[in-house]
Design a protein around this nucleic acid. Structure first.
Length: 484
DNA sequence: TGAAATGTTGGGGCG
DNA sequence: ACGCCCCAACATTTC
């Protein structure tokens, strides 16, 4: 009987895992996770992501135990660890599911070469996306840069196969290799700031299924109405599970389409389609990352290379960036979002757009600074999505917002958090303000502020910048780079 | 997956 | 009754 190593990376699930399924069909399976100690990427997982990873690995290990298997943890050079484990277990092949971050693609290619040199058989599978990024192309054979036509094209393509079931059992190898302890990976923060994360999330494949079921049962039927209202549980909140691969997009797509087939209600179908469209933005993000691999660092539109961003090395620039990071800008909807992020590792999508627009257009701080902060604080930090989102907000990416599109944080707050529930939840010092002033406390009469126990500049900051002036400044700055 | 400025329209108050 | 003006409300244009 043959033995196969399954190299787990960002696919921490048993169900719909092609590499695992193919390995199981072949014989004995050695599930492996490796913490690489090689310097392979400027985008190593951030603190929130590592917290998630720790718990997700614990969950995967427990699920494998139930199947009579194990999760073997290793540290070091992936190639060396895999070769050594293959030798211990007499494995002759190593299977994994493909990943798409440019530097990690290179790692995988070099590992595959090294394995072949060692007379081992590497095989990669397609499990992270609905379609491979290179399978979607325009009639001219070029990559898409605008979402709508990309979406149309994908809709016309053959649907992905139904998801694979989790293996019912796994055969153990003759000998198990030695495994590091999970704690040895040192993924948890040394300062114990993670209590609020643990309240908000349950990492792992079972958690992913629960969240998906809740979304399909409770939120999907009003998705279009509720998804933009951050106080409502109207979005799927599946992004961290998708990022770590505790759930595959194919599983989501299949569940939603099954509902649509069972459903006689046309209106609900529209809701489902609106959600699948969001899932397609993820596909689009990976399509762009694959075809434009420099975009995590550099704007897709070259003229933005010369945009006059605020220098965050100056005292003033640093102060503004930090005010944004800490949720102390004086604009309640922005601050609420940044505090939700800090406390839960997550921010509602509508608020991400508002907070990003504020950093980039009101403070004129580079989208890269925002991308880095999100990278370290989000449990769903994902290079493809993060890059697309920030370049979109800054106007320098694919299908970007026109440069003159500047979000007004007061209007956005009043429109999408009309009763101020979201702001009051995350900015409790504003909770006694009446609805009419909760999104613009600086505008409230002194008596109202006094009654609500708000002292501007003390219990809550004054606005960091005047939005009207900031908007005009942004338009001038953007006009300065207008010519291509 | 905007917001502000500017233009148009139509009802109602009023002389 | 009629014209004039005001100004929401809505539409269009511009940034």
């Amino acid at each position: 009987m043959k033995t196969t190593l399954v190299w787990f990376r960002d696919d921490l699930r048993l169900a719909d895992n092609p590499a695992l399924a193919m390995a199981a069909a072949r014989g004995a399976v050695v599930p492996v996770f490796i913490q690489s100690t090689e310097r392979e990427d400027a985008w190593k997982p951030g603190a929130a992501s590592r917290w998630w990873l720790h718990h997700s690995l614990a969950s995967l290990a427990a699920s494998l135990d139930e199947l009579g298997s194990r999760l073997v943890l290793g540290r070091g050079s992936p190639l060396e660890v895999l070769k050594s484990m293959a030798q211990t277990t007499s494995a002759d092949a190593i299977f994994w599911n493909r990943r798409y971050e440019p530097s990690l693609v290179q790692v995988d290619e070099s590992v595959a070469r090294g394995l072949r040199d060692a007379k081992l058989e590497p095989r990669s599978f397609h499990g992270r996306l609905l379609h491979e990024p290179w399978q979607v192309e325009t009639k001219q054979g070029t990559p898409y840069q605008v979402f709508s036509p990309f979406h149309r094209r994908v809709e016309a393509m053959p649907k992905p196969d139904p998801p694979l079931a989790a293996p019912e059992s796994l055969t153990s190898p003759p000998t198990w290799p030695r495994s590091d302890a999970l704690d040895a990976l040192e993924l948890l923060p040394t300062m114990r700031w993670d209590a609020t994360l643990a309240e908000a999330w349950k990492p792992g494949e079972a958690g992913a299924r629960e969240v998906l079921e809740r979304f399909l049962a409770d939120a999907l039927s009003d998705y279009r109405r509720d998804r933009d209202h951050p106080a409502v549980a109207g979005t799927s909140r599946l992004s961290p599970y998708l990022h770590h691969g505790e759930l595959s997009p194919r599983q989501i797509d299949h569940s939603v389409r099954t509902l649509m087939r069972e459903d006689v209600d046309e209106a609900r179908d529209e809701e489902a389609r609106a959600y699948l469209r969001q899932l397609m933005w993820r596909e689009f993000a990976y399509h762009l990352l694959h075809h434009f691999p420099t975009t995590p660092e550099r704007p897709l539109r070259a003229k933005y290379e010369r945009f006059p961003w605020t220098d965050v090395e100056t005292l003033e620039g640093r102060r503004q960036l930090e005010a944004w990071q800490r949720g102390q800008t004086g604009y309640p909807i922005v601050d609420a979002g940044m505090r939700e992020l800090w406390q839960t590792g997550f921010m509602h999508n509508r608020v991400r757009m508002i907070a990003a627009s504020f950093l980039v257009k009101d403070l004129l701080v580079s989208w890269r600074e925002g991308a880095r902060w999100f990278w370290d604080t989000l449990v769903d930090a994902d290079l493809a999505n993060n890059t697309l989102g920030w370049q979109w907000a800054a106007g320098c990416g694919a299908d970007a917002a026109p440069y003159f599109r500047v979000f007004n944080p007061v209007l956005q707050g009043e429109k999408f958090d009309r009763r101020g529930e979201y702001v009051r939840r995350w900015c409790p010092e504003l909770s006694a303000l009446p609805d009419a002033h909760v999104h613009k406390p600086w505008d409230a009469p002194a008596s109202v502020l006094r009654q609500a126990n708000v002292t501007l500049g003390d219990t809550y900051p004054r606005p960091l910048v005047d939005h009207k002036e900031a908007r005009e400044r942004a338009l001038v700055a953007l006009a300065s780079i207008r010519a291509d």
